[in-house]
Amino acid sequence: MNGEQPSGPQPPNLPEVLTRLLTAPKGAIWPTPEDRHRPRPGPQRPRQPSRAVLGVWLWVIFYNLVGFAILATLWQTMQ
């Protein structure tokens, strides 16, 4: 600890450009381990559902209704 470099293999000194994203970025999508217990000031917005999810649900309902109509028609023709 007197200013001498320790012996043995040393990790390379990387420029800040390569290491700046290793620390917790402010705009991270998920919380980093350091952010988990940090208080979050400000009002919390409720999550808005995506319009794509609504489109998928409408497609699923339509697909099932058409399939049920086809099966009902086939059932009627068999009788």
Results as ranks from 00 to 15, higher is better:
residue 5 Q to R: 15
residue 15 P to D: 15
residue 66 V to A: 15
residue 40 R to N: 08
residue 35 D to S: 05
residue 56 V to Q: 08
residue 5 Q to Y: 12
residue 32 T to D: 02
residue 14 L to M: 15
residue 62 F to T: 04
residue 48 Q to P: 00
residue 38 R to P: 00
residue 35 D to G: 00
residue 65 L to Y: 00
residue 27 G to T: 08
residue 50 S to A: 09
residue 36 R to F: 02
residue 55 G to V: 06
residue 39 P to T: 00
residue 41 P to H: 02
residue 7 S to M: 14
residue 12 P to V: 00
residue 78 M to R: 15
residue 19 T to A: 04
residue 14 L to K: 06
residue 57 W to A: 03
residue 29 I to A: 13
residue 34 E to C: 02
residue 4 E to A: 05
residue 42 G to M: 00
residue 20 R to Q: 14
residue 10 Q to S: 13
residue 9 P to D: 13
residue 43 P to L: 09
residue 54 L to E: 06
residue 33 P to K: 03
residue 64 N to Y: 05
residue 21 L to E: 09
residue 6 P to H: 00
residue 26 K to R: 15
residue 54 L to S: 09
residue 23 T to K: 10
residue 52 A to K: 14
residue 32 T to L: 11
residue 15 P to G: 13
residue 78 M to W: 00
residue 54 L to T: 08
residue 30 W to C: 12
residue 48 Q to I: 13
residue 79 Q to T: 05
residue 19 T to M: 09
residue 76 Q to E: 06
residue 59 W to H: 10
residue 23 T to G: 05
residue 70 I to D: 04
residue 73 T to M: 08
residue 46 P to E: 12
residue 8 G to S: 09
residue 7 S to E: 12
residue 21 L to P: 05
residue 3 G to L: 09
residue 47 R to H: 04
residue 5 Q to T: 14
residue 38 R to K: 15
residue 13 N to W: 01
residue 58 L to S: 08
residue 61 I to Y: 06
residue 66 V to E: 06
residue 50 S to H: 06
residue 4 E to Y: 10
residue 9 P to K: 09
residue 13 N to A: 15
residue 62 F to C: 02
residue 39 P to N: 09
residue 3 G to D: 08
residue 38 R to L: 12
residue 24 A to H: 01
residue 3 G to R: 15
residue 1 M to N: 07
residue 57 W to D: 01
residue 69 A to F: 05
residue 79 Q to G: 13
residue 49 P to I: 10
residue 68 F to K: 03
residue 29 I to F: 14
residue 67 G to P: 01
residue 22 L to M: 14
residue 63 Y to C: 05
residue 8 G to F: 11
residue 9 P to S: 08
residue 27 G to R: 04
residue 28 A to E: 04
residue 7 S to C: 11
residue 2 N to D: 12
residue 77 T to L: 07
residue 75 W to Y: 10
residue 35 D to R: 03
residue 25 P to H: 04
residue 27 G to L: 12
residue 15 P to K: 12
residue 38 R to V: 11
residue 9 P to G: 05
residue 74 L to G: 03
residue 51 R to K: 06
residue 30 W to V: 13
residue 59 W to F: 15
residue 9 P to R: 07
residue 26 K to P: 03
residue 34 E to T: 05
residue 49 P to W: 05
residue 19 T to Q: 10
residue 29 I to G: 10
residue 10 Q to E: 12
residue 56 V to K: 14
residue 51 R to Q: 15
residue 35 D to V: 01
residue 28 A to P: 01
residue 24 A to C: 11
residue 40 R to S: 11
residue 47 R to I: 06
residue 3 G to T: 06
residue 46 P to V: 13
residue 22 L to D: 11
residue 60 V to F: 06
residue 75 W to M: 02
residue 54 L to Q: 07
residue 40 R to Q: 15
residue 4 E to I: 07
residue 22 L to W: 13
residue 47 R to G: 03
residue 73 T to D: 02
